[in-house]
Design a binder for these strands. Structure first.
Lengths: 150, 150
DNA sequence: AATGCTGCTGCAGTCTGGTCGCATTAGCGT
DNA sequence: ACGCTAATGCGACCAGACTGCAGCAGCATT
């Protein structure tokens, strides 16, 4: 099996599925592996455009879709704004503060009984990664309850 | 305290806060109390427009915002589409199938350990109503795993 | 190295869901 | 019945995302 934990592995997978190694794809995959996570499509586009200025945003979206179909990455909705993209190998759940927008990454374990109860009571298989869990972080909760942002 | 479980009570509350009783508001509140839940802004607009055809969608949004500020209703994001509005008195969590879009209403209890673990480990107060829990319903899971819709 | 098939791209346009500014209308206290 | 001003209708606008199309460029082949 192809190693999806390196940029080279991902590009190889792309080729194995009949895809072509274009500049935009190479740079996009590099940007995905370059430090940090929770990157939005716009941020990835900006990173790619540093080296290839006229790669269009729609190309980024098309390549992100393709990489998602291949199982290389997943996208998450962390709140009202744009979606964020993550390498599938390091995907995780999120707690997002409705007030300050801060996100906390959490492992599967925290969902414990929710996942089990959903399955046993409703036959529902929870996807802990696609949508974030919304709420209020410690700092904002301490600063006072209201939802509105600072 | 004003009774938010009847249309009259809500309209009274509106007045108590310096608001005016306009036709669009009256009809909107009636539409909210009329059977069913999970109504989108467009659906509510359509319901209002049956009796007052030139109430504008932006008026619906403004009134929904106002009612939300007053604590009469809450909105939830059930997936990729438009938000849905619920009377605060009967709000609940949701499990939404990524494949067929079906929703299952669930009570607070199902979130059990998630709520507690988020609080003790991260000081994070989970809001179980604002964003739905995403996943796959029994029928779709049985029909085969892929995410794509029918 | 040149050729040609076809997958990929840039572009501009479109779509959805929602918000805003502004002139006008209409609630309602007096 | 009057007048203050909240609320409305309208159109423009916004962000995030997607699509059709003509042309460009990977890469297998010659």
């Amino acid at each position: 099996m192809t190693d999806l934990r390196t940029a080279e592995g991902v590009l190889r997978l792309l080729r194995e599925h009949g895809g072509r190694l274009t500049t935009s794809r190479r740079l996009l995959v590099e940007a995905l592996f370059a430090g940090g996570d929770h990157k939005t499509a716009e941020e990835l586009a900006a990173a790619v455009q540093v080296r290839a200025p006229d790669v269009h945003l729609s190309t980024i979206y098309r390549n992100l879709d393709e990489l998602e179909r291949l199982g290389v990455l997943v996208h998450s909705h962390l709140g009202h704004g744009p979606a964020s993209y993550h390498l599938a190998a390091e995907a995780h759940g999120h707690l997002v503060c409705e007030r300050c927008g801060g996100t906390i990454e959490v492992g599967e374990e925290i969902f414990g009984t929710l996942v089990r109860a959903a399955r046993t009571r409703h036959g529902f298989v929870v996807d802990t990664r696609h949508f974030a869990i919304s709420g209020m972080c410690a700092a904002c909760a301490a600063a006072g309850g209201g939802i509105p942002a600072p």
